[in-house]
């Protein structure tokens, strides 16, 4: 383990000032960073521990759910607000690592890692989440979609800090579902993960709004916009879901690696999108409750 300095700022401003120093790196949950430190993949001069920043919270005001970047996945799973309003995020939190990981890893850390398989990314993408970024010039709000800029690359500029994740409370007649394939049932990095959200019109048939997002099948977690356009504005049906799922499978760019073949990822993406949409549809029509 290389040597470094360590600081524990108590305000965001202090943290930003520290992060502006060269070689500084933010320490959130540490479940990725400590592994990278040990392996010599990163060698920061200073770790800025974010645990004293008071960024552990889930709040709801004016129809906006705000989640502090340092909220752990265990806390997300425990949050009534998340379970009720963003069930798909709760589903993904339950699938992250195991108990130990969920007690340490944070939502902000998972998003900032920007790994293609980040489990919290697809659910937040389908909820049109925004991330609040603080820097020396003040704060900015960035759509999550624009936050992932490449494999393990996020949109943070040097000295910036992701402090909050925001998502609007979904409209009535909304259903959503997160599904993941790993190589075992716990402690598993996603081979494919998928989230889908459907919001139906008052006729309970017309798709007012749809979001589909996938992970581990492209350089970053991403939306499947062509698949969304298959459904958007049309009356939902099994065959339309099938078509959307095929479109999703066509527009991703999976690779073969230790965890799965590209062919497998493409095919199982189709299946997961189909299943997630089907579940979301049932939920939107009230046939299924969240977390069924």
């Amino acid at each position: 383990m290389p040597s470094f300095e360590y600081s524990t700022p108590t305000t965001v401003d202090q943290a930003i000032a520290l992060l502006n120093q060269s070689g500084a790196s933010a320490l959130a949950g540490g479940t990725d960073l400590l592994i990278h430190l040990r392996a010599g993949i990163v060698a920061p001069k200073q770790l800025v521990d974010l645990s004293a920043l008071d960024l552990n919270y889930v709040r709801k005001d004016d129809g906006i759910i705000r989640i502090g970047a340092m909220t752990t996945f265990a806390e997300i799973l425990d949050s009534d607000v998340v379970r009720r309003d963003l069930p798909c995020l709760a589903e993904s939190a339950a699938e992250i690592g195991a108990v130990q990981t969920r007690n340490m890893a944070t939502l902000g850390g998972n998003l900032c890692s920007a790994v293609p398989s980040a489990d919290s990314a697809p659910p937040l993408l389908v909820y049109d989440a925004r991330v609040k970024i603080a820097g020396s010039d003040g704060e900015r709000l960035v759509p999550l979609e624009q936050f992932f800029v490449g494999p393990k690359k996020n949109a943070l500029k040097p000295g910036e800090l992701l402090i909050e994740i925001q998502a609007s409370v979904p409209l009535p007649r909304t259903g959503a579902r997160f599904l993941k394939l790993g190589r075992r049932k716990a402690m598993s990095l996603a081979v494919v993960n998928v989230a889908a959200r459907l919001t139906l019109g008052q006729d309970h048939r017309r798709v007012e709004n749809v979001r589909i997002a996938l992970g581990a099948v492209a350089p970053t977690p991403r939306r499947a916009k062509r698949a969304e356009s298959v459904l958007q504005g049309s009356d939902v049906s099994e065959s339309l879901i099938d078509r959307a799922a095929r479109a999703a499978a066509d527009e991703i760019a999976p690779i073969s690696d230790l965890r799965a073949t590209a062919t497998f990822r493409r095919e199982s993406s189709r299946v997961l999108v189909k299943r997630a949409l089907t579940h979301a549809w049932q939920m939107a029509t009230g046939e299924t409750k969240p977390n069924d």
Binding site: L181, A260, T263
Partner: peptide, 8 residues
């Protein structure tokens, strides 16, 4: 016997 092999 991985899912990749089985699905293929």
């Amino acid at each position: 016997a991985t899912p990749s092999k089985i699905l293929a």
